Simulated assay, not measured.
Amino acid sequence: MKTKASTVAQKLLNLYRQEHVIFGGWAAVNQVFVAEADNDVMRELRALPTGKMLIQHIENLRSGKTPMDSIERELLPYGGTMDQSVATISLTPTEMSELESGINAFTPDDAGLERIQNLSVVKRFGNEWTVAIRAALATRPDLLQKWAVITKTYRAYYLWHVATDMLNQPLSERAHAQLQADMPEYETYLPLFGDAGEELLHKLRAFISVREPISSDNAPDAPTSI
Rank of each mutant, 00 (worst) to 15 (best):
E198D: 14
N118I: 00
P213M: 11
Y189C: 03
K203G: 00
S209K: 13
T88F: 14
P213F: 12
K2H: 11
L12N: 01
Q18L: 01
V210N: 12
F23H: 14
E19S: 03
A148V: 01
A148W: 13
A87T: 10
A156E: 14
P67R: 06
D109C: 14
F106S: 11
G102F: 06
V149G: 09
L15S: 02
Y78P: 00
A47P: 02
D69N: 07
N30I: 04
P49K: 03
P77T: 02
T151K: 05
M42L: 15
E114F: 03
H161D: 13
L54H: 04
S63Q: 11
F207L: 03
S120I: 05
V86M: 11
R115S: 12
T7N: 11
K123L: 02
S172A: 11
Y16M: 00
V41M: 10
Q169M: 14
T164Q: 09
S63V: 08
T139E: 14
E36K: 13
M42N: 07
T130P: 07
W160R: 02
A138K: 15
A135T: 05
P49E: 05
G24F: 05
P170W: 11
A175P: 02
R134G: 15
S70I: 03
I103N: 06
N60R: 12
L12Q: 00
G112L: 08
N168L: 14
N168I: 09
Y154K: 07
A27R: 04
M68H: 05
K52D: 12
T66S: 04
F33Q: 01
Q117I: 04
E187G: 07
A5Q: 12
I103T: 10
L144S: 11
E185I: 02
L45G: 02
L113K: 06
S97V: 01
Q56K: 15
H202G: 12
M82E: 01
L15A: 05
V122Y: 04
T130D: 08
M96H: 10
A135N: 07
L54D: 03
G126C: 08
Y154Q: 12
G197K: 09
E114Q: 12
P93N: 04
P108D: 07
P184M: 06
N168T: 15
F125M: 05
Q169E: 14
G51F: 09
